[in-house]
Every structure is written in structure tokens, then in C-alpha cells.
Design a protein around this nucleic acid. Sequence first.
DNA 1: CGGCAGCCATGACATCTGTCATACGCCACT
DNA 2: AGTGGCGTATGACAGATGTCATGGCTGCCG
Lengths: 204, 204
Amino acid sequence: MSPTIKVLLAEDQSMVREALAALLGLEDDIEVVAQVARGDEVLAAVREHAVDVALLDIEMPGCTGIEAAAQVRRSLPEVKLVVLTTFGRPGYLRSAMEAGADAFLVKDAPAAQLAEAVRKVLAGERVIDPTLAAAALAEGANPLTDREREILRAASDGSTNAELAKALHLSQGTVRNYLSTAIQKLAVRNRAEAVRIAREKGWL
Amino acid sequence: MSPTIKVLLAEDQSMVREALAALLGLEDDIEVVAQVARGDEVLAAVREHAVDVALLDIEMPGCTGIEAAAQVRRSLPEVKLVVLTTFGRPGYLRSAMEAGADAFLVKDAPAAQLAEAVRKVLAGERVIDPTLAAAALAEGANPLTDREREILRAASDGSTNAELAKALHLSQGTVRNYLSTAIQKLAVRNRAEAVRIAREKGWL
DNA sequence: CGGCAGCCATGACATCTGTCATACGCCACT
DNA sequence: AGTGGCGTATGACAGATGTCATGGCTGCCG
């Protein structure tokens, strides 16, 4: 039989991370050789442990799993990348694919799919929930410009226009213009809704 | 040796739930006898499987783990309750304790603490992160009235005053008054910040 | 080169939001 | 019986927010 598959697990919540490790540990052909809790530790760990497949949560301190995936893809293109996330947001799927992910799994899916996905990506297959893929295609690309996204993100904690203007070195009017166009593009009525919708779609 | 400890696992994300089950399955003295994905299925499952310890995630469809805990505590007071959550919000800890929980764990904690907590609550101990306990005490109780909470919750999706007034059968002025007092109590400057802070503290 | 998109800004306007004073009814506690 | 807290409501005011028209600057693409 072929040697075991070396897997890295990147997930910030220890309990979940170790539980997933226990789950994968039940598989004979899979070995979890490294665990990290931060996105910015992924690349070094992948390199150090000669990892075959990296399992990356999206929401992590340091940097997101998607950014980490892009880093690994650039430096070590032969490593397979599985992105794992709580939220099945179409925009996340899109960004993950653009970052070079081989699989995209939501934590809602049955646990069996995890080991399954690891084996499949190693065999050169791609693993994507078809429902999500359809949603991602149906929704189209992110309509927001970089600046609009940045300002929306900054506004998401309830900052006022004056604070945003100061923080971003803009005039208040400019901030309002950006927010206004973002509100129109997202077809909503105020910044709070705009933030919510953009979040839901994974556009923030 | 005593018979195995019968545990119920309530957590909406299958992958996490099954991973936690795998983790607990590694312990000789613990047996996961039931798994549910919704808060409103907890009570029936606990009853049916003669569960010793119920492990409850807070964020679940149906009803929250805290509400489920309260139900179990009322009907089957001898069952031990462990509340498990992603967010270490002091307000959550407080509500969990008021609902009769025996332990409160955050998913950030090392996985070993899970089995540990199961054994301890069965022995009659309480398990609470001392840092969180201190934070919960330092922060004081939720200053918001029922109505203020309700309106803040309704406002959290970006609804306008007119929509809130219609949805809650109130006058617009009343809605604004409630939001205004909530804003003052939370010492913030607008509804968006109020929603954010109340969420963070677990007061929503 | 010309056009278009993105970035930045201003001013004016309408509307929404947050504050304050005030008031009434209800309920619980003293 | 009085007090205080909560829920509800109104009206008035100031300030924040969203929209629109308009303009200048840059850089990319055809």
C-alpha cells in the first residue's frame, strides 16, 4: 500500500481542530502531521512537514485560509488545498477557487466527506458542493470596487462618516459617495443592510 | 469499573458534531449515545436515550443551547448540562448559568477539556473558565429591558425605523426612543454600534 | 488618441436618526 | 397612598445619512 497521506490542519478553535484531527486519525491512510491555529503559520508548516494536503479554515487570525491558500499555491504548487468553512457563502467559494483551492467544503456537510475530499484532491479531482457552485455562478461576481469594499468594511463596526473620513484620509462627502454607490449596487436602503448583504455573499 | 457515561451531542454543523463524537469516542468511559442538530430536538433525545450528560452548542436552529438547557433542567433535573460555544461572551456565560448549566466551555479551549468536563460535572463539579467568570462578573448584568433587546434585535439587520414600527406595532417615535435609550445605556453613538456591542457582550 | 472606469472632491437637498421634554397607564414594592 | 420602573406615545430640534449633479485626475484598453 502507498504511504499515508500527510495532512496539515489549520483552524483557530482548538477544540474543533483537535476533534477534526481525531476524526481523520481514524482513517488508516491519513496522518495529521501538523496543526496550526493561525493563517500566517500555514506556509511555514506546510513546508516544514512536507504536507500533501492542507486543510484550511477560512476564518482565522493572522490571515484568512483563502490568503493562506494563495500563498501555498504560489510557493508550493504541488500541495493540494482543501478550504473548509462554516459559512457557505458563494463569494467565499469564488475567492477560494481564484486562490487555487482544490476543494471547498462547508462544516455543515457530513464528516465522511472530509476524508473523502482529502483522497479525491490527492487523486487530482476537485471537490465542490454543486449547490454552492450553482449559487456562486448565479450570483455573479462581486460588483464592488476595492475602495467600496474597504469603506464598507470600515463602516461595518458602526463608525460614523466623520470617523471613516479621518481613518481613510478622505473627505466626508467622498465617504458618503462610496457608501451611496455601494448601497445602490447591492440594492439596499442603508449602510447597515449593505454591510449585512455584502457579508452574506462573501464580498466583504 | 462503573458503566460508561452516556452523552448527547447537540451541534448544528455535522462535521464538527461528528468530529467531537470521534474525539469523545476515544475515551473508554464515555459513549455518545445520541446526536442532534437542532435545539428543539434536545429534550426528547435526552429523555429517549437516558442521557447522563448533554453537550449543547449555543448557536443552533430551533432554539439555542441555552434554551434547551433550561428545558432539560426543568424536566429532568438530574441530567448534567455542558454548554459549549464558539464565542466566549460573558453574557452567554451568565445566561447559561441562569439556565442551570453545570459547565461552560469555549471551543477555543484544548480538546482535552471536553472529556474532562464531562467527568467533572458527573462528579458534581462545576466547570467554568475563571477568566470568563471574572469578565462576566466585572461587566455586570444586562442593562437592557426586554423591549429594548427586542427592538435592537429587530434593528440588527439594517431595518429602518418605519419598518421596525410596522413589524412591532409601535409608533416610529417609540422605536426611536427605545433605540435612543439603548444607545445611551451601551454608551455608543448609533444603532449599528449598539447592535455590535450588545452582540459582543451576549446581551442580544 | 479617445473613451471609459475608478478614485477623489464639492455643494445642495431631502430624509432619516438620535435627543429631549413631556405625558399617560400599568404594575410592583414600600 | 406614594414611588419608581417599564411600555407607549407625541412634537420639536439638531445632526447624520443618502442622493444627485458635477468636476478633475489617473490609468488602462481598444
